[in-house]
Design a protein around this nucleic acid. Structure first.
Lengths: 146, 146
DNA sequence: GTTTATGCAAAACGTTTGCACCCTC
DNA sequence: GAGGGTGCAAACGTTTTGCATAAAC
């Protein structure tokens, strides 16, 4: 896909522009973290992001990672998860909403989406007098052995 | 040391028997905590359980609360939640499984259950090669204003 | 009497914050 | 140049742990 006019891809450059528009300064550190996040297929925690960042710039600090994660969360650029009540793990707020299967043996995270479940959630909340702001659906699973 | 048949107990007596059967010693502290849990309509965290326990026995310690919560969780007697990534909050593992609506303004927790959602979850997991061990569904909501 | 639980204090853990200096706009 | 961002170290809130004592079985 190579169409400079139609920019539907989520590169960290896009995010930089959006963040700039929101009045966020793009520092060297923030750029590094944004790149790490858009390159990540997994759901790293702050320490792991810090480790990956240090390989690019060994002067970066863990506090900056934490501060940046909070900022990006507020800007809606990332999502924060607390699987198993463990440390926060982050992912790029890509295009589509999705939920998570957590492999209890490996810790791997698989994403899925069910429009049916989403609708049922809305229905249930509405019946109880609530509107959903956001939700969290996590399936803690084991691989089925064949 | 004799075993009085009469003990001013609530429903936690059932739990005591089950725990005894599992080889768990019923100490004064554990009895107090079990009572607090079966009396609680809300989802208190460890500190709140500690506060309630101190009113009954002011020599109880916070470590004992934490150790007991871990034990009871392992025994399947309670469930642990980490709403919003905050401190663990606990509830008696009552009869039925249910999920949670968290009122974002008040912090109140409303319980609900949807057999349809449960079935859809199973279906999705199976299709991806997983079996669900347990799951977590939390709807972070605002009250609808009329 | 043996085994296990407790209380206390200290440590561990993930995260936030105060401050002096540095960089982006 | 002004205002916000950074690194560092120290503080934080939650949870765990080592150890000597106490209680359950």
């Amino acid at each position: 896909m190579h169409n400079p006019a139609m920019n539907t891809m989520t590169t960290s450059n896009d995010y930089e522009q959006q963040l700039r528009q929101a009045g966020v300064r793009i520092t060297r550190q923030r750029r590094i973290i944004l790149n790490i996040l858009s390159d990540s297929e997994d759901h790293p925690d702050a320490l792991e992001i810090f480790r990956r960042a240090v390989e690019i710039d060994n002067s970066i600090s863990l506090s900056t990672v934490y501060r940046t994660m909070k900022l990006l969360e507020e800007q809606g650029a990332i999502h924060r998860h607390a699987f198993n009540g463990g440390p926060s793990r982050f992912e790029h707020a890509g295009s589509d909403h999705h939920d998570h299967i957590i492999d209890m043996e490996s810790g791997d995270v698989v994403e899925f989406h069910s429009e049916k479940i989403e609708r049922l959630q809305e229905e249930i909340a509405r019946e109880l007098g609530y509107e959903i702001v956001h939700h969290r659906l996590e399936l803690y699973c084991r691989k089925i052995k064949k």
